[in-house]
Simulated scan of single mutants.
Amino acid sequence: MLTKKQTIINGLHQKPILIDATYTSTKINQPIIIFCHGYKGFKDWGAWNLMANAFAKAGFYFIKFNFSHNGGTVEQPIDFPDLEAFGNNNYTKELDDLKTVIDWACNSSEIQKFANTNNITLIGHSRGGGITLIKAEEDTRIKKLISLASVSDFENRMMQLYEASQWQETGVTFVENGRTKQQMPHYYQFYEDFKANQDRFNIERAAKHLNKPHLIIHGDADTSVSITESKHIHNWNTNSKFVTIENADHVFGAKHPWEHNKLPLQLNTVIQKTLNFLNE
């Protein structure tokens, strides 16, 4: 029988982290998966809840969470009511949030009743793919990594969007959310944080030093993040396994809201490929 529990924990940056865990309450020693959403994402986007159910049914303790500064709130976790928080987000905060969630998972006596805290896998989608790759490389508690439609270069993506001198002058730049039509701010601190931690945030460096099983999955019809980026990661990490999902877009056939009780076909394929990898 599947159980879903929601938890709120304190982040390191004055904002809470909203978490949910989906698992089978009649099993013990379940391997843990922690899922990280991407840019302009949230844990309840689209078909992510159906994905959580699928992994839980397959015997995993599946955790997903909202980054503390993703623009959501505890009261309104879907979409982006807190644009001020969104504007103050950065890669340091996301890596700190992920560490805080891992710490919580490893130290929770409630989780230990059902899960094996010595067997943790990270799954990251899009920007979350870069965050999880960096964290998997630097945190010995992580045993395996799955990258879904991952970015390969934080700096290149940042500079495609923003002209640094103008950004510094105005202190803020805005990106439109194509779905909600909100003008979403990025304060200049985002760039300053990146420059101050440039080596740590180098995905190529992390991939080359990663010595853990790594599955890379990307759709060949992704117009948001080119499949070339995952191919770069695969080339940097010679021990990784690369899977192409034919005709799949950036979210593997899902959308928000997802008003069906079945997974999109391509996302279901992603899950099956991931389960095969985890059970090897």
Rank of each mutant, 00 (worst) to 15 (best):
232 H>W: 08
54 A>D: 10
145 L>M: 11
196 A>R: 13
188 Y>A: 08
118 N>H: 11
126 S>D: 00
233 I>M: 04
5 K>W: 10
103 D>A: 09
89 N>F: 03
81 P>L: 03
176 E>I: 03
166 Q>F: 15
213 P>R: 00
7 T>N: 02
57 K>E: 15
170 T>W: 12
111 I>Q: 02
57 K>G: 04
136 A>R: 04
269 T>C: 06
40 K>M: 12
55 F>K: 04
183 Q>A: 06
45 W>L: 09
265 L>P: 09
108 S>K: 07
3 T>P: 01
115 A>F: 09
119 N>F: 13
215 L>P: 08
26 T>D: 14
268 N>Q: 11
81 P>E: 05
79 D>K: 11
159 M>H: 12
246 E>A: 11
131 I>V: 14
118 N>C: 11
165 S>W: 15
235 N>R: 14
5 K>P: 02
124 G>W: 08
51 M>E: 07
196 A>P: 07
95 L>E: 05
81 P>F: 05
47 A>K: 04
77 P>C: 00
185 P>Q: 13
153 D>V: 01
123 I>C: 03
261 N>L: 15
204 E>R: 09
247 N>I: 08
53 N>A: 12
235 N>L: 14
23 Y>L: 06
60 F>W: 10
276 N>W: 09
6 Q>N: 14
218 H>A: 15
247 N>C: 11
191 Y>S: 02
170 T>N: 14
124 G>R: 04
267 L>G: 01
12 L>F: 00
253 G>Q: 01
142 I>F: 06
129 G>R: 00
116 N>C: 14
274 T>A: 15
114 F>Q: 05
267 L>I: 06
11 G>K: 01
80 F>T: 10
90 N>V: 09
164 A>F: 05
184 M>R: 07
134 I>L: 10
221 A>T: 10
42 F>I: 15
276 N>V: 12
141 R>F: 13
115 A>M: 03
74 V>K: 04
145 L>F: 06
138 E>W: 06
241 K>N: 08
90 N>L: 09
66 N>S: 12
119 N>E: 08
177 N>D: 10
234 H>C: 15
148 L>I: 06
92 T>K: 07
172 V>R: 08
16 P>L: 02
8 I>Y: 15
200 R>W: 04
77 P>R: 07
90 N>E: 12
216 I>A: 11
136 A>N: 01
129 G>T: 02
119 N>M: 13
82 D>L: 11
139 D>W: 00
51 M>W: 09
169 E>M: 13
201 F>K: 01
171 G>V: 12
209 H>N: 12
11 G>R: 00
233 I>G: 02
214 H>D: 08
209 H>E: 07
105 A>K: 07
196 A>Y: 01
109 S>W: 01
43 K>Y: 02
67 F>A: 09
222 D>R: 13
220 D>M: 07
126 S>K: 04
98 L>S: 01
251 V>C: 06
57 K>N: 15
136 A>E: 04
20 D>Y: 09
115 A>N: 00
134 I>W: 07
34 I>G: 00
238 T>V: 08
98 L>R: 03
113 K>M: 09
158 M>H: 13
218 H>D: 15
231 K>N: 14
41 G>T: 10
113 K>P: 13
